[in-house]
Nucleic acid binder design. Structure first.
Lengths: 107, 107
DNA sequence: AATTTATATAAGTTAATTCTTATATAAGGA
DNA sequence: TCCTTATATAAGAATTAACTTATATAAATT
């Protein structure tokens, strides 16, 4: 799932869609409007975001209002936190060592 | 910059490389070894990671030891935290709205 | 019932990505 | 110096991604 999430987030248009959704629910039309891009293109991006668990949609007549899915960030946060922990436990010594090496090579 | 970072992270091989580097410094050869992939392929991934500010390299004779770039990690965390806040505030607001709607529709 | 509105899906195109193999470069060791 | 090791770069092939236009569907409006 982290793969789907990061793939979804790697596209600037999709990130802009998320930013817009942070302001509140929006329909596909609302979301498409600010972009110089066709409606199907936006629908395709929304499918990717939904597949990654980053947005939710409901049915309201012919509209499909979208909103952010807070749970969708959890896996990504876990992954990043894990990377951070490993980094912290394994790099303390290395950083000191590299600093020392720098001092030994003055100029 | 966040664009380059997220693009870099969208590839599973590159994420695996970062995970390996979280355990400590490694040369290109070290990094290539666990993968069923040629050395040039790994070098190309490393170039992407370096360009995204996620790794640092030093020169040590003919070797090029790589390590995680603390700033790259920090920037990512900041971005993700910001995204999390956006997700949460929107969720809270929507929650309030739905609660209000509930009150207005008593049973 | 016919038309319009909101969205989805299909098919095709172009461009970007990720590999490959072949080759270049530069430091280390015999 | 010659050979080997470690890595980078170039060029090309295969795959995937991100668009497009055309069309389908289903609810809302007239």
């Amino acid at each position: 799932m982290i793969n789907a999430a990061l793939h979804a987030l790697s596209d600037p248009t999709r990130r802009a869609i998320l930013a817009r959704l942070a302001l509140g629910e929006a329909t596909v039309g609302d979301l498409a409007q600010p972009f110089a891009m066709s409606q199907p293109a936006i629908s395709q991006h929304l499918k990717v975001l939904e597949g990654a668990g980053l947005i939710l949609r409901r049915v309201e007549g012919t509209k499909r209002p979208c909103r952010l899915a807070p749970q969708g960030l959890a896996d990504l946060e876990d992954w990043l936190a894990q990377l951070r922990r490993a980094f912290e436990t394994n790099y303390a010594r290395l950083d000191d060592l590299l600093t020392e090496l720098d001092k030994e090579t003055p100029k």
